[in-house]
């Protein structure tokens, strides 16, 4: 099966500013991908390139095996919900569905109406009068009813309260279950992604810092706490991602393809939030990271 997204040395500059640098990714199909990173990391740029709204400055990208936005067929295969789930405030809920039907060849009107019903939205209500959560749900309904193979969502839940957030993600996961849609969604809140994403891409300062299946990444990373020592004294095969020393103690975040050997340290697993923060910290303090020893990948 074709990769959701395949990028080679992808770059985008705005004037002199690098928005995306040397981005190389290969995301296998059938995943719900979480794109995480601080504000301004380049998430929106990457997503806009993926749906064909922006052209890259350098490099090459394929989405579902084709150039993004290459032709109407490709546009129909990818659904995109922009940041803050925009809707037309002067159009009614019903107008949005009519618009969706006119603009999309594969429009699933049954699905759209059933979803609006289920959400309890009044078709005659103007979108501008809806709550934030309802607007987000309307935008998602339009994107899902287009029946895309890949759904791209830019910070869809950032501005929602916890309950609306959960409802939105529920709707999204139900669509994934029903239509086997692949999803790429960006967020700066890791807690949103923990349950729903099975693939993680961490983007910081315009560069991809980490990418892989969430479960593998969690299994590969550990925190080692031990008496103060140089990282060169750790066993081979451990890639030190982050090291922190006090006068008597050393804490290492390490990545390893195999079991952590027993030794005079305590090894603990990281949760997703710690994992993401580790790579953000490393990107913020590049002098601290040293070339990997032993372990590759």
């Amino acid at each position: 099966m074709t990769a959701i997204l395949q990028a080679r040395s992808l770059g985008k500059t705005y004037g002199r500013r690098d928005a995306l640098t040397e981005c190389t990714l290969e995301i296998p199909p059938g995943h719900v991908v979480g794109l995480v990173g601080p504000n301004g990391a380049g998430k929106t740029t990457l997503l806009k390139i993926a749906c064909g709204m922006l052209a890259p400055t350098t490099g090459h990208i394929e989405v579902l095996g084709n150039q993004p936005g290459a032709d109407p067929a490709q546009l129909a295969r990818v659904g995109y919900v922009a940041q803050d789930t925009p809707t037309y405030s002067n159009l009614t809920v019903a107008d949005h569905l009519t618009l969706g039907a006119k603009l999309n060849p594969g429009w699933d009107a049954l699905l759209a109406h059933a979803r609006i019903d289920q959400l309890g939205l009044d078709p005659k209500q103007k979108a501008g009068k809806l709550s934030g959560g309802q607007r987000a749900q309307l935008a998602l309904t339009v994107a899902v009813a287009k029946r895309p193979e890949l759904l791209i969502l830019d910070e869809p839940v950032a501005s929602l309260d916890p309950l609306a957030r959960r409802d939105f993600l529920r709707h999204l996961m139900e669509s994934v279950a029903e239509n086997s849609t692949s999803v790429i969604l960006s967020s700066h809140l890791v807690s949103d992604l923990e349950r729903v994403c099975d693939y993680l891409v961490v983007l910081v300062s315009s560069r991809v810092q980490l990418a892989g299946e969430t479960e593998d990444l969690l299994a590969q990373h550990h925190r080692l706490v031990c008496a103060r020592r140089d990282q060169a004294d750790l066993p081979d095969g451990l890639e030190v991602i982050l090291a922190d020393h006090t006068d008597r103690q050393s804490t290492f975040i390490v990545r390893s393809q195999t079991q952590i050997p027993a030794g005079d340290w305590v090894a603990d697993q990281l949760d997703l939030e710690d994992l993401v923060l580790t790579y953000m910290e490393r990107a913020a303090a590049p002098t601290q990271s040293q070339p990997p020893r032993g372990a590759s990948r």
Binding site: V32, R166, L169, R170, M173, V176, A177, R195, V196
Partner: peptide, 8 residues
């Protein structure tokens, strides 16, 4: 998925 809000 509906109950737990989790990846299918």
């Amino acid at each position: 998925v509906t109950k737990v809000v989790i990846n299918p």
